[in-house]
């Protein structure tokens, strides 16, 4: 009734409304900031990355380490002991198409421009081993004329700027202070964005547990002073692992003494897995 009366009333009503709206916004913002503490905590967490607390792991201080992985493809003999060791050590899904590390065989037949590439999960290789739990390369190129051939071990690159971590909607995958990219299976919702995001195909989905899986550099081993299982079993020293903070470590020596490269540097992922002996077709 009052509103209908005069324009002044309308004016004062609008002022009261704006004043009320301001108060409401202010109080809601205050609630958001104060009550949730979300923004404040997030700010604090960024500081924590720079000077982090140390997770309670016995005899291990992650601020002291910067792990790195090296692969000397010129040494690999394709025995696939690394693939089997990884599966045994980490209880990886025991089928040929689920693996945290793998070895690719590149073969250029005489006169061919492009290489033939296969890995342990190739049907021919499964047939040669006779089981999906044991792996071996078949001898399909025996007697053929070959220009060039070699094996390339592959593994998660544990990137400095991992695209998988960037896309994870729940914070289930993350980069640790010592360099490993890990997955918290309690927080993984199985959306598989990270599987899509990884430029190296290093992740796979475990359909039984409905979580994504990947190499952890055997985090339970490296935090106890051991080497990852694949490095431990490699009989020819094609896989190298160590602390890049330590001048005397295998990886520091490997990086000092060799001219190394990383896979797909153009992605900007900055892998910490360094190769020697790759050819231009390997990616």
């Amino acid at each position: 009734m009052k509103r209908k009366g005069s324009g002044g009333d309308i004016k004062s009503g609008r002022r009261a409304f704006l004043r009320g709206l301001g108060k409401a916004v202010a109080s809601v913002s205050a609630l958001m900031i104060g009550g949730a503490g979300l923004i404040g905590k997030k700010g604090a967490s960024h500081a924590a990355v720079l000077k982090p607390d140390i997770p309670p792991i016995p005899d291990y201080d992650w601020t002291q380490h910067d792990w790195g992985y090296g692969i000397d493809a010129t040494r690999c003999i394709g025995c696939l002991r690394c693939v089997e060791a990884c599966k045994a050590e980490n209880n990886v899904v025991p089928t040929a198409n689920h693996f945290r590390t793998w070895v690719e065989r590149y073969v250029w037949l005489e006169g061919e421009e492009r290489p033939m590439v296969d890995s342990h999960s190739d049907p021919g290789n499964i047939a040669a081993s006779g089981s999906e739990k044991e792996y071996r390369f078949d001898n399909r190129y025996q007697g053929k004329k070959i220009d060039k051939a070699f094996f390339v071990p592959k593994i998660c690159n544990h990137c400095r700027h991992p695209s998988c971590v960037q896309v994870c909607p729940t914070g289930a995958t993350f980069k640790t202070h010592d360099g490993a990219v890990l997955i918290d299976h309690d927080y993984c919702i199985g959306c598989q964005y990270c599987v899509q995001a990884c430029p190296y195909g290093a992740r796979f989905f475990d359909y039984e547990r409905q979580v994504t899986e990947k190499c952890t550099w055997c985090y339970h081993r490296i935090t106890k002073g051991l080497k990852p299982a694949c490095v431990e079993v490699c009989p020819v020293g094609a896989r190298i692992f160590g602390d890049m903070n330590n001048e005397a470590s295998d990886i520091s020596k490997f990086l000092r003494e060799n001219r190394v490269q990383v896979l797909k540097p153009e992605t900007g992922n900055a892998p910490t897995c360094f190769y020697i002996g790759l050819d231009k077709e390997v990616s």
Binding site: K41, K42, A44, S45, A48, V49, P52, D53, P55, G171, A172, T173, F174, K175, T176, H177, D184, D186, Y187
Partner: peptide, 8 residues
């Protein structure tokens, strides 16, 4: 958030 955007 203790060390970052993940469960410490």
């Amino acid at each position: 958030y203790r060390y970052g955007h993940y469960r410490a």
